[in-house]
Design a protein around this nucleic acid. Sequence first.
DNA 1: CGTTTATCTGAACGTACGTTCAAAAAGTAA
DNA 2: TTACTTTTTGAACGTACGTTCAGATAAACG
Lengths: 193, 193
Amino acid sequence: MARTAGSHSDITGPRVRDAALKLFAQGGFAAVSMRAIAAEVGVQAGALYNYTPDKQTLLFDLMERHMNELLAAGTDDPSLAPQERLKKFVAFHIRFHHARPDAVFIAYMELRNLTEENFARIEALRSRYESGLETILRDGVAAGVFQVSDTKIATLAIIAMLTGVNTWFRTGGRLSLEEVTAQYWDMVRRAVT
Amino acid sequence: MARTAGSHSDITGPRVRDAALKLFAQGGFAAVSMRAIAAEVGVQAGALYNYTPDKQTLLFDLMERHMNELLAAGTDDPSLAPQERLKKFVAFHIRFHHARPDAVFIAYMELRNLTEENFARIEALRSRYESGLETILRDGVAAGVFQVSDTKIATLAIIAMLTGVNTWFRTGGRLSLEEVTAQYWDMVRRAVT
DNA sequence: CGTTTATCTGAACGTACGTTCAAAAAGTAA
DNA sequence: TTACTTTTTGAACGTACGTTCAGATAAACG
């Protein structure tokens, strides 16, 4: 056998990434073999190399796509009041991260498996995202509506707190995502005012 | 050759755990070989099996020791005012975690490499630690000094926020650990009152 | 000193890994 | 149908893995 019926690059490519995302999140980059990814897709290991030059690049692609999605989806309207902008940020962050737990997990946990250069590129993207929040905080401080002595620290603290939702929240539990978001917004609001 | 000069179980045992801790934190459980750990200690791979039945148990031991240390070190005095108790908790959590970044990293990142049974045991220990904070929050709510609508969520949010310090704080940077602690305490205090 | 016990070596076991590549089959276009 | 391109197979490459164990040496003990 060789080429299989219905095989197409446009189909297999995304399926390779989906499989890798799922398995990396499940077992960790180093613990997942190319053969395991191939099995999930339904091809032999060799076929994966039509879609990535190597395993490391496959990981990097997943992370980079995730960070680019995050940056593209985030919106901030500087004409709004800082309180309103911060509220929108909190809601967006929780919603966006909750929708893609695997990608979030990988983007935070597999950084050490990147080459130095790839690591730097991911960190640059993450830094850009953090800057978005810090800008809101700074504008709020300048406007006198936030009292934050160090906006950089507050930025990191808020993001860590919000991302933490992913580690415990499950749909169908005691609270809805909207209720959880409201509570986190309450804490964030009070923490900066 | 065989037994080496000066070899002692009391010495090699801790060195094996230290090496494993360092290397697991650096590269991840799956990516670190028993041979690499042995090389760090200065023995052959076979010698490690005098100190652990297998690699998985070595990881579990590291995590369990860390969690037990955490629980043993944490102190809460219910006779103090809730505000004071919470302040002590914040300071303790940041200091304790900052002192052992490798163990913290492993205890949070390598959970998926545990067997189901071992995972449950670590989670039980973590849950006990979280309960300590939640008790403080509940007491504060009961006393009317904290306004928190869901103490469970607040517990998880605060812990995520505080543990986040480890991901960015480095001694010798712009701020001292004491200054950082003060700022986090400020945010936590405001978030619950 | 001689005997026993604790500790480590070095080699070996079967298995799995990431990656490569010629050959083959399916799709595409004429 | 024929010629060409895209996609996949299946086998193979060298390397590394976790673990076991008989044998060897150092330490401890009487």
